[in-house]
Simulated assay, not measured.
Amino acid sequence: MTSTSEAVDATQLGVGTWVIDPVHSSISFSVRHLLVAKVRGMFETFSGAVVVADDGTPSVTAEIAVNSINTRNDRRDAHLTSADYFDAEKYPTATFTSTGVRADGDKYAIDGDFTLKGVTKPVTLDLEFNGVIRVMDYGEVAGFEASVVLNRKDFGIDLALPFDTGSKIVSDKVGDKATITLEIEALKQA
């Protein structure tokens, strides 16, 4: 019996271009709703790549189609893509471009510029590199998990709907504990 996959050095991402496989990747988020629950969603259309230079220095780029948001509620999704929130007609994509990658204990931190709704801010993603595997007829596949904290007000999304108590319907930060989660598989290009 022939093995269909084999492990590759899990501590090193090889030189070259690694393209995000959207079929086996996800970008998801959660946001507080009415201060007592969470609404979860995802972006269904995105692309990106990790490029490892000959000297081993990695760089990351990514693009998200903002109108691909899916919270399992068409009415809410239409509102989120409207000018009240993402203004997807005027700003159809969100982008990330790394400015550096550094070790952070047994994980990594990716510093970069994130642009949403025409506003660019520096952000840091916490990254876990899950290793590389070579799959017959598929090539080398790398796995990553990343998370980032974003405050929506930093990107010009400042719709507050106050209650009589003075609290807000939507919290100021996006995500469970203000976290957006990325589960990424990337394929090495020949």
Score class of each variant (00 low, 15 high):
Phe96Ser: 08
Leu187Glu: 10
Asp77Gly: 02
Arg152Tyr: 07
Ala65Phe: 03
Ile169Asp: 00
Asn130Thr: 09
Asn130Ala: 13
Thr45Ala: 12
Gly139Ile: 06
Asn151Cys: 09
Asp87His: 09
Gly41Lys: 04
Gly100Asp: 05
Phe96Val: 10
Leu13Ala: 07
Asp84Tyr: 01
Ile180Thr: 08
Val101Glu: 00
Val135Glu: 10
Glu183Cys: 08
Thr181Met: 11
Thr99Trp: 07
Arg32Tyr: 02
Pro162Met: 03
Lys90Gln: 13
Phe96Asn: 08
Thr4Lys: 12
Asn67Phe: 08
Thr2Met: 14
Val31Arg: 01
Leu125Tyr: 09
Leu127Asp: 05
Gly143Leu: 08
Tyr85Ile: 12
Gly139Trp: 08
Ala37Asp: 13
Leu35Ser: 14
Asp55Pro: 06
Asp55Leu: 04
Asn130Lys: 15
Val66Pro: 06
His79Ser: 04
Ile69Asp: 01
Glu6Asn: 10
Glu128Met: 12
Leu182Lys: 02
Ser98Trp: 01
Ser28Asp: 13
Ser25Arg: 10
Pro122His: 09
Phe155Asp: 06
Asp9Ser: 09
Thr97Leu: 10
Ser68Ala: 02
Ala88Phe: 01
Val135Phe: 09
Ala94Pro: 02
Asn130His: 13
Ala49Glu: 12
Ser30Val: 01
Ala49Tyr: 02
Val101Asn: 04
Gly139Arg: 05
Phe96Ile: 08
Ala10Gln: 10
